[in-house]
Amino acid sequence: MNPFFVILKKELRAVAQERTILIAITIQLFIASFSSAILIGLMSFYDPEAIGLSTRISVRTGIVGATNNPLVGFLEEQNAQLTSFATLQEAQLAFDAGQIDAAILIPPERAAEDDPTVEMQLVLPASETYSTVILMVLQGPLKEYETYLRKRNGIQIRYTDVAGKPATTYEFQYGVILPLLMFFPAFIAGSMVVDSISEELVNRTMDTLWVAPLSLNTILGSKIAAAVLLAGAQAALWAALLRFNSIPIQNLGLVLLLSVLSAAIIAIGSAFIAVYLKDRERSQFLYSIFVLLSASLSYLFDLSPIALVTRLATGDYYTGPAEVALYAGLLAVLMGAFFTTAEKLIAVPS
């Protein structure tokens, strides 16, 4: 068999035997599920509509004072269960008996000319968790009432009557989760290449391999290829899982291609580092800095792989093979540079 494939097979077998790939997959699954738990949970506080929270929770609200106030109508639209009380003390008794969750004290309405502002009192339970959720649900009707009062003062707030669909989950799935799952395998690939090369160098097995009728480029190339192959397989696995979770990916071929290209670019970059520095410690350190650098950089550019994957997967009209080809070009240049200089680099003591 071609020596290239022999080493490639050896690398893949090692990964399978050491169960490292299982750890790697666990990490990714964990990061993806944890970040969705965090972000979906948190974003729902910024955009309660997103998870339909405001319509699902019915807050039992006590109204003290003017029940003909427009706010009462807004509250009813929000599914709040309203009970009216004559005094705050009565509301307190009802709260103690577990009949209401919150109380609003509404003052009698005054003409806008006298005083443009309205002051209300909202009484919430002492528990922080509880009162936060109630406040979140009541925020909608209160805002509507505020808009009503503004109108009364002759002030119009624009762009409020748009009937869109809450986009938090959509943005998160395509802007965070998908890029994460498509590029984390690439990050792992680079780490693998660093380990694999530096292990051979530290244990001096690279020399032995090199003595055999193998060129250095064959050895390094097969190690890089093994890592990229694994990255590709993981990306394909994640794509399949996303589809299974009914998150469709447009331009799937291009998305996967871009993921594989990034893995190859990162793997070659990390091979550069490992061949130059020759030990795991410094190589991993420099590599992690390099990854942080490229990840931060890709947030700043429109053509970055992260932005491209998001746009490809959501079926953007203006994004297609041309943008992906750019990375194929970059990879070709890097490969050329690496395989012409590797032998010289490995000879440099550092």
């Binding site: 443009p116 309205v118 009484v123 339970p125 505020e146 009062l149």
Partner: peptide, 18 residues
């Protein structure tokens, strides 16, 4: 606009027991 006109609703928050 004047803050009173632009943000006319003020909600004082208190907690039970009143």
């Amino acid at each position: 606009y004047h803050p009173d006109a632009a943000f006319p609703l003020r909600v004082q928050v208190n907690h039970f027991p009143v």
